[in-house]
């Protein structure tokens, strides 16, 4: 029998919804336990970390110094490190404060604000090398299973560069949010989520990040027909996309 793959599921500050999303796989994830050893997952184990991991999945963003240490130690001990979900990849909703006066945001929240850690929020790639990203808020559990299965088979995982509109029931119709002059980032966002937001009540806020090679000037041009620059930037703040967007704009 071949050796089991040692996996770590490590959670930094976040809602922990991405690891909960994995539970949606039900028995299929438990069946993998013949091939996988969950060497560290605080939901399953009450045991210390092993010396080495094959893969660690990191969810959340580091906020406390302790967490930054955990992230760096996880990188040191693991062959592969995978960012799990929007917070780890792009900063998550907690990044909103970066775009405002974060000290004031803190003072509005806590009385003893001087004793609360309040760093700028960044995706984990700003602190450690990231080998792969599973996007979304939360992640798509099927995509997670695909990625893990590929890695177990010795293949490179990949996420198809298609837009969210590909699965959107509104696409091409008058129900399309863009046709109703509402900001929706569907055409420029990495699909694969099954379009649950515009498929229901909400425009896409690009929680999975932009598609590779996306033309943000075209996006701006399309949206500025009915929305102001401030309105567009406000929507990009929600899932930590505004800094990525500005970087892409400056590249041109």
């Amino acid at each position: 029998m071949s050796k089991k793959i040692k996996i770590g599921m490590i959670s930094l500050t976040s809602c922990e919804g991405c690891r909960i999303a994995i539970l949606k796989l039900g028995k299929r994830i438990l069946d993998l336990s013949d091939k996988i050893d969950f060497s560290e997952c605080s939901y399953l184990e009450d045991t210390p970390w092993p010396d080495n991991f094959d893969i660690v999945f990191i969810e959340g963003t580091p906020i406390t110094k302790r967490e930054l240490g955990v992230l760096k130690e996880a990188r040191r001990r693991s062959k592969k490190l995978i960012a799990l979900g929007n917070c780890a990849a792009l900063g998550g909703v907690q990044e909103i404060k970066n775009y405002h006066n974060k000290e004031e945001v803190l003072r509005k929240t806590y009385k003893y604000y001087n004793s609360i850690e309040n760093p700028e929020i960044k995706g984990i790639k700003e602190f450690v090398d990231v080998d792969f990203t599973i996007p979304g808020c939360p992640i798509n559990s099927e995509e997670f299973l695909e990625v893990v299965t590929k890695i177990l088979n010795g293949e490179d995982p990949k996420i198809l560069q298609v837009p969210v509109c590909k699965d959107c029931p509104r696409a091409g119709s008058e129900r399309c949010f863009l046709n109703q002059n509402k900001i929706c980032f569907g055409p420029w966002t990495l699909g694969g989520c099954g379009s649950p937001c515009p498929g229901n009540a909400l425009p896409c806020l690009a929680c999975r990040g932009f598609r590779e090679g996306v033309n943000v000037d075209m996006m701006e041009k399309t949206l500025e027909k009915f929305a102001t620059k401030e309105e567009i930037e406000n929507r990009l703040e929600v899932f930590g996309l505004l800094d990525e967007y500005k970087k892409l704009k400056n590249k041109k």
Binding site: C15, G17, R19, I63, V93, K97, E104, V105, L205, V238
Partner: peptide, 27 residues
């Protein structure tokens, strides 16, 4: 870590609250 969810709501449109506060917890 403190994500300062209440602080970041300030100044945002009212309908961002249900969307952002949902992210307080994935459980």
């Amino acid at each position: 870590g403190a994500r300062l969810i209440e602080g970041i709501l300030v100044g945002r449109r009212y309908d961002d609250a249900p969307l952002i506060t949902s992210r307080i917890c994935g459980v």
